[in-house]
Design a protein around this nucleic acid. Structure first.
Lengths: 193, 193
DNA sequence: GCAATACTTCTAGCGGTGCTAGGCTTGGCC
DNA sequence: GGCCAAGCCTAGCACCGCTAGAAGTATTGC
């Protein structure tokens, strides 16, 4: 039993090592640098070992995304709860979200842009995902009017996601970012719903 | 001279053929099916011929994107100008945009999701792109308040882009789409800015 | 009409990708 | 200590984007 459990522990540890290596490689050199050969070299095992832990490369990306979502949920929570008014909380949440996307673009892509096999808007959604979305729901709750907070949260999330991805892709100019964000948030705080 | 010009005509025609084949292949089987080998087979030439027209596969995708933008600009214009009130025009524009993204997902990705080498928010932006964005500007103009219409247009575009991509990626549920769209547009028509 | 030339297109191949079959080594058990 | 099973690695598959150099074709000059 002891040997068995030790092996399981080591396996679990190696799996974390793979995920961490993938994340670091993606964050430092972009996802195009994350090849199975390169990743295998990084963890000092051969390629097939990766496939004894994950069914495919995509599954590794998914695991990285999940970690990222947990990280983001924490940051969103910290930002929102530190604010002293509903309006400040909303602004802090939005800024924290965009800051995360800008600081960790590769991670953000894995979470919200790449095609990934995660149950998002369902009961089986991972807790971290529910937590992150919950922060949005709480932030918009004071401004719901006759709209369901979940719906409003989705709209805000979508708007921020759109801003971030279009800006990163060079589709909208960086310069006007603050002005856009202010105007967007005003649409949420001022409207009666 | 005549022979020269005939050759140029034939070349231009073949270039259009390549772009059309790439678009059709992407729309019917997704971009992952668009390989240079497959594309060459489709146009009944060898691979190197593609590279005598385009510097890379990405350049072909960019050409397809440009065509798509022109298509969308037309559809947006038709939808907006057919409406009889500012609110209806805004709603029609938004619906047309989302409809385009849903009907032609591969094309949409080339235009707004994939990394593409096009000057977007600059003076040198292609006319079709300016036209498409101009439709957004006109649609939000009645609702600007003290925000610049261009800024508001970018926000609306970003919000719709976010909704579309998150929905397509399974990140937000399809069911509540109409409700979300209505609530989003309400934020634009009701707020004072 | 024919040879020389210039241009176009193709064949074949490079170094890379994700993924896997099958041999080999290593470590636990009797 | 010898056997056996589990775990790992080497080597290779079919594919990718892209390109050098051969082969073919059309145009030009005689």
């Amino acid at each position: 039993m002891s040997i068995q459990s030790r092996k399981e522990r080591e396996r679990a540890q190696r799996e974390k090592l793979i995920i961490a290596a993938a994340r670091e490689l993606a964050e430092s050199e972009g996802w195009e640098a994350v090849t199975t050969r390169r990743l295998a070299e990084e963890v000092e095992y051969s390629q097939p070992v990766l496939y004894s832990h994950f069914t495919s490369k995509d599954a590794i990306v998914t695991a990285v995304a999940l970690e990222g979502i947990a990280d983001m949920a924490e940051e969103l929570r910290a930002a929102r709860t530190a604010a002293h008014s509903p309006a400040a909380a909303l602004a802090a949440l939005a800024s924290a979200y965009i800051s995360f996307a800008e600081r960790r673009p590769a991670l953000y892509d894995a979470m919200f842009s790449r095609r990934v096999d995660l149950p998002f808007a369902t009961q089986e959604a991972p807790p971290a995902l529910k937590a992150a979305f919950g922060e949005f729901v709480e932030a918009v709750r004071p401004y719901t009017g006759d709209t369901a907070p979940e719906v409003l949260a989705e709209i805000l999330w979508a708007a921020l996601h759109g801003l971030v991805t279009l800006m990163r892709g060079g589709r909208i100019p960086r310069e006007a970012h603050e002005e856009r964000l202010t105007a967007l948030l005003a649409r949420f705080t001022q409207a009666a719903g």
